[in-house]
Design a protein around this nucleic acid. Structure first.
Lengths: 193, 193
DNA sequence: CCAACATTGTTGTCGGCGACTACATTCACT
DNA sequence: AGTGAATGTAGTCGCCGACAACAATGTTGG
């Protein structure tokens, strides 16, 4: 009763392509990713992927979408929650962001290259009902101001740290120290108090 | 005494390729950039570019290097100088950064995708002898701390704003407002004082 | 139950690209 | 003037994405 070695239908080629592509992206760049090579890997013909994605761009968009989901999940998992103070929370989120960027640089690049392709995205875990900023304001840890705008500013700073750490421009400088510096500047300000 | 219509030698094919490629990058992505198409544009044979760049990657690296020079120049031109306060200075630099990113999104992406390919780069105009941070510290506008590390944190934040604005995740939100929020958080801190 | 029909996969082909080789023309220097 | 380096040309190879025609399998309603 074993399944035949080579069933005509793959089962879930679409998911398999996305999964294998994510693996490949961990090693190489998006430019090195070829649908034909993936198809070869999975033992299907070179045209099979076209049954699931109209063209390469659509495939990359789907890949980016799954990347956003994984980043959201990683940040949600790293968030110590509203009970923690703002600083530990920002540091934990920042570290998770950097970890994701380091583990999957090409995927992160693809996610941000998606432009209008990727539907709207609010900045992972930073805004929304359980907003980090609103929590901090409620605890008196953040000054007043539009929570959405403040959250975006925080997101921008964390994203900048992750982007720089991945890009190699830091030349071996301590990424975690950079993150701490950035978070502390955001919380207490550069100006002497 | 006019030059022949089609001289055998181009004159400065290398520079022409880089220049034309930069133009193309203003419209499309780096993936759409082909050496053969550029050669066609410039009226040379498809193999001519290989005389100047051993392979496509080397060409892209050279393009990225010229991008860094232009970004450095743009930031240097936008810097109001040490006489200005820290806030106006950061805002001016941030606006120039965003302007560059908006005008040349694909080039900026290429510059940061260069990874180890691009030689070290200190973060445009933010560090070095005429460091913005050292100036601010001298004026009492910034707390003590390693100027290099603080400058990198500032760079990360500004880069994050530019990256987000280019990526489209902001969905039409006001980029300049985001920049102002970010700079103000960096200067005065999010915590109430 | 089985006959349409939709879904998914295959083979074949096309043009474009990057890389490489062999050859041609021009330049620069002695 | 002569010779070697620099620069450009033509041709080829293999890989890729896109497309078309065809085959196998899954599904559904009469």
């Amino acid at each position: 009763m074993r399944a035949p070695e080579q069933p005509y239908h793959h089962g879930d080629l679409r998911a398999a392509l996305l999964e294998r592509a994510a693996e490949r992206l961990r090693l190489g760049t998006v430019a090195d990713l070829s649908l034909r090579a993936l198809a070869r890997d999975l033992g299907v013909s070179h045209a099979a992927p076209s049954r699931h994605f109209p063209d390469r761009q659509a495939f990359l968009s789907a890949l980016a979408r799954s990347g956003w989901e994984r980043l959201d999940a990683a940040l949600a998992a790293a968030d110590p929650g509203a009970d923690a103070g703002l600083r530990p929370r920002l540091l934990a989120l920042g570290r998770a962001y950097v970890r994701f960027a380091t583990a999957e640089p090409a995927l992160l690049e693809l996610m941000f290259a998606g432009k209008a392709a990727g539907e709207s995205h609010d900045g992972p875990g930073l805004s929304g009902p359980d907003s980090l900023v609103e929590d901090a304001q409620a605890r008196g840890e953040a000054r007043a101001g539009d929570p959405g705008e403040l959250a975006t500013a925080l997101w921008a700073a964390l994203h900048g740290v992750a982007a720089l750490s991945v890009s190699g421009v830091l030349r071996g400088a301590d990424v975690d120290a950079l993150l701490v510096q950035t978070v502390d500047a955001l919380l207490d300000g550069l100006r002497p108090r």
